[in-house]
Amino acid sequence: MSRVPSPPPPAEMSSGPVAESWCYTQIKVVKFSYMWTINNFSFCREEMGEVIKSSTFSSGANDKLKWCLRVNPKGLDEESKDYLSLYLLLVSCPKSEVRAKFKFSILNAKGEETKAMESQRAYRFVQGKDWGFKKFIRRDFLLDEANGLLPDDKLTLFCEVSVVQDSVNISGQNTMNMVKVPECRLADELGGLWENSRFTDCCLCVAGQEFQAHKAILAARSPVFSAMFEHEMEESKKNRVEINDVEPEVFKEMMCFIYTGKAPNLDKMADDLLAAADKYALERLKVMCEDALCSNLSVENAAEILILADLHSADQLKTQAVDFINYHASDVLETSGWKSMVVSHPHLVAEAYRSLASAQCPFLGPPRKRLKQS
C-alpha cells in the first residue's frame, strides 16, 4: 500500500486566492494483479454453464480479502454459449462490502496482453458476489490457432484489481511565511564533478583513453575500487588504474551511474553493462540491467540471455529466462542460440529441462510459493 502523499503547497495549487485553511483528501486504492494459466484448455468440458475456478489470491499475505477468477468455457447461458465468460469473485471478506475495479486480458504466445476488457467503474462486491463479462471473447476466435491465444493449448488470463480503501483527510492552515525547501541536487552536482573533471585525484585508463576521477567517490560506490585504493596496490601508489576489459562507451555509462545513480543509455548496452556491474560489484546497476534484459526477452535471444545471466550470477534474470524458455519451449528449441547452448553450456540445458519437467508435473513435489530491489 502506498504512503499517503503530503498535500501540495497551496501557493502551487492555483494562481488564484489562497485560503486560510485547507483539506486534502486521499482515497486510498490498493492495486494488484494475478495470472492464471489453464493447461490443455481444449479438453475443458463443453457443457453450457460449466465452471472452472482459479485458486484464491489477494494483494498480499496480510490481506484478508480473498478473490478468485471464474471461467465458463462455453458461456454462462444460452445467450453467451458462443463466448467464454469471465468473472472476478470475492471469496471471503471481513467487511460487509468492498468496491473494486478490474481489468481482464489474455496473454498471447509472446506474453503480450490482448483482448483487454475492464470495468468502467468500481463495482460493489459482497462475499460470494462476482462481476465480469458474460461475453468476454468469442470461442471461435479464441480457438483459432492463427490468433495465437492458446500457445501449446494453454489459456493464460491476466487480471488487474484495484480495491478502494478508506479515504484519509489531511488538513492544515496557511501561513504568510511559507518556506520552500529546494530539491536535493546531489546527483546532478556529483555528475558535474565527473563531467568537468574537477578536483580529480586519479586516472582511469580504458582502451587508450584516459578519464579523470575521484578516488573517494569510486571507493564509496564500488567495493572493488575501494579494495584497489585501500591496500598497497599499484593503483593506490600511482593513482592510476588500467581497465582492459570494458569498452570506453560502456565504461562511461558505468561511471555515470557511479556518480549519479542513473544510467540513461542502459537499454542500448544492458548486456555489456551487466558484465561491468558484476565485475565492479555495483549491485543496483546489475539489477537494473537484469530488468532491462528481462523486458527484451524473446524467442530468438532467450538462450543467449540465459548464458549471460549464468555467467554473471544474475539470479533474477536467470529465473526469468528459464521461465520464458519453459513457456515458449517449442519455439526456443528451434533457435540457433539454443542449439549452440546445447554444445557450449549443457548444464544450462539440463537446468531448463528440470524446470520444465517440474512445471508440467506438479505432483512430483509440493507447490512452490512464489514470493528486491534495493
Rank of each mutant, 00 (worst) to 15 (best):
M1F: 00
R3G: 02
V4F: 02
P5T: 08
P5L: 03
S6Y: 07
S6R: 01
S6W: 10
P7E: 12
P7K: 10
P8M: 07
P8V: 05
P8A: 11
M13T: 04
M13D: 04
S15P: 06
P17M: 04
S21M: 13
S21I: 03
Y24G: 11
Y24R: 12
T25E: 00
V29P: 14
K31Y: 02
F32Q: 08
W36C: 04
T37P: 01
N39Q: 13
N39S: 03
F43D: 13
C44P: 09
E47T: 09
K53F: 01
S59W: 10
S59A: 04
G60Q: 09
N62S: 07
D63L: 06
K66N: 02
R70W: 13
V71W: 12
K74C: 13
K74D: 10
G75I: 11
L76V: 14
E78R: 13
S80L: 10
K81D: 13
Y83N: 09
Y83W: 05
Y83V: 09
L86P: 07
L86G: 15
Y87C: 01
V91G: 12
V91F: 13
C93S: 15
K95T: 06
E97R: 11
V98Y: 12
R99C: 12
A100S: 14
K101D: 15
K103I: 13
I106V: 03
I106L: 08
A109P: 09
E112Q: 10
A116T: 03
K129W: 14
W131H: 00
G132S: 00
K135W: 12
R138E: 11
R139G: 06
D140Y: 07
F141A: 10
L143A: 01
D144E: 05
D144S: 05
L150F: 07
L150D: 02
P151C: 10
D153N: 07
K154H: 09
K154D: 10
L155S: 14
L155T: 07
C159P: 00
V161I: 10
Q165M: 13
D166E: 14
S167D: 01
I170K: 02
S171M: 04
Q173H: 05
Q173D: 01
N174P: 04
M176Q: 04
M176L: 05
M178A: 06
V181A: 06
C184R: 03
C184M: 05
C184D: 03
L186P: 04
A187M: 02
D188V: 07
L190W: 05
L193I: 02
R198M: 14
T200F: 15
D201E: 11
C203K: 15
C203I: 07
L204H: 04
A207H: 15
Q209I: 08
Q209M: 14
E210I: 15
F211A: 12
A213K: 14
K215F: 12
A216T: 08
I217R: 01
S222R: 00
P223Y: 12
F225L: 07
A227P: 01
M233S: 11
E234M: 15
E235A: 08
N239H: 05
C256G: 03
I258T: 01
Y259M: 07
Y259E: 01
T260L: 06
G261P: 00
M269E: 01
A275E: 02
K279R: 06
K279M: 04
A281K: 02
A281V: 12
C294P: 02
S295P: 06
S295R: 12
L297E: 00
N301C: 06
A303Y: 07
E304F: 06
E304Y: 11
I307M: 08
L308I: 01
L308G: 09
L308R: 05
D310S: 06
D310M: 12
L311S: 08
K318S: 05
T319F: 09
Q320P: 10
V322M: 06
F324N: 01
I325F: 08
I325Q: 01
N326K: 01
N326T: 11
Y327V: 11
Y327H: 02
E334S: 10
T335W: 00
W338M: 06
M341L: 07
V343T: 05
S344Q: 14
H347G: 12
V349A: 12
E351H: 06
A352Y: 09
R354A: 09
R354C: 06
A357K: 01
A359G: 08
Q360R: 13
F363A: 15
G365Y: 15
P366G: 15
R368T: 14
R368V: 06
K369M: 03
K369V: 03
K372C: 13
K372Y: 08
Q373D: 13
